[in-house]
């Protein structure tokens, strides 16, 4: 099945953190996407010059008609800068998707489910958590989320609320630039695995060095490599 470019209108935009903006786009897809998938966007300048980038879908597959993207502003970022400063509700954006069939979790795949995200790498994991809460709340899940500061934690209120209200969900924040904060290391992983039990599926997403380091730690902790899926945003 071909993936065709479509025009999707921005229906809402709001700051998620100081560096991350949430954009809601009306896609009107006939089939639901799978939690973990992404879209490609294509921006076109008046002279025809184009830039394409990928963005993960943050919303739940059960949210009909629209998808949410969470886009982090990078210094000198050509496309993230446009979405941070220029794009507004009412604008049409060319996109195609949903894309990706490896970094996906369907509620039927069950758990335990280990999610490890660094920075904006939490975005596809949010979609999985939202999907899980609606479709399979009995599946044990743990999100290990590394962010620089408390203020940079994406969807912080929602994650804290889920941690408090959902019996089978646990949140572990690793805040690398707060006093007393730490990076994810073998001890953090060991503690997470003890709390969750051996995961049937582990998903790791973030910048390159983060994903490499975490995937190695998970293998060293004894997880079978084929149960670990990775997505790298770049950097």
């Amino acid at each position: 099945m071909a993936l065709t470019w479509q025009e999707a209108r921005i229906t809402a935009a709001a700051p998620e953190t100081a560096r991350v903006r949430r954009l809601t786009l009306a896609v009107g897809w006939s089939r639901p996407f799978r939690a973990g998938q992404h879209v490609d966007v294509r921006l076109t300048a008046p002279d025809g010059y184009q830039a394409q980038r990928s963005y993960s879908i943050a919303s739940s597959p059960m949210q009909a008609e629209t998808i949410d993207l969470l886009i982090e502003r990078l210094d000198d970022g050509e496309v993230s800068g446009f979405f941070s400063d220029v794009a507004e509700p009412g604008d049409a954006i060319e996109l195609r998707g949903p894309i990706g069939g490896a970094f996906v979790w369907d509620s039927g795949a069950g758990g335990p489910l280990l999610l490890v995200g660094g920075g904006s790498g939490v975005v596809p994991l949010l979609s999985m958590l939202r999907h899980r809460a609606e479709a399979a709340p009995g599946v044990p899940a743990l999100l290990l989320y590394s962010a620089r500061t408390r203020g940079e934690v994406i969807a912080r209120d929602e994650l804290m609320r889920r941690d408090a209200e959902e019996p089978e969900f646990r949140l572990r924040l690793a805040l690398t630039r707060e006093t007393g904060g730490r990076r994810i290391d073998a001890d953090t992983i060991g503690e997470a695995l003890a709390a969750l039990g051996t995961p049937a599926h582990a998903f790791v997403c973030g910048a390159n060095p983060f994903v490499s380091a975490i995937a190695d730690l998970l293998v060293e902790a004894g997880l079978p490599p084929r149960t670990i899926r990775t997505e790298r945003f770049g950097g």
């Binding site: 025009e7 008046p46 604008d91």
Partner: peptide, 11 residues
């Protein structure tokens, strides 16, 4: 389709 407000950073 021209994207409103996008100029881009050409190589």
């Amino acid at each position: 389709m021209v994207t409103r407000g996008f100029t881009g950073r050409r190589p």
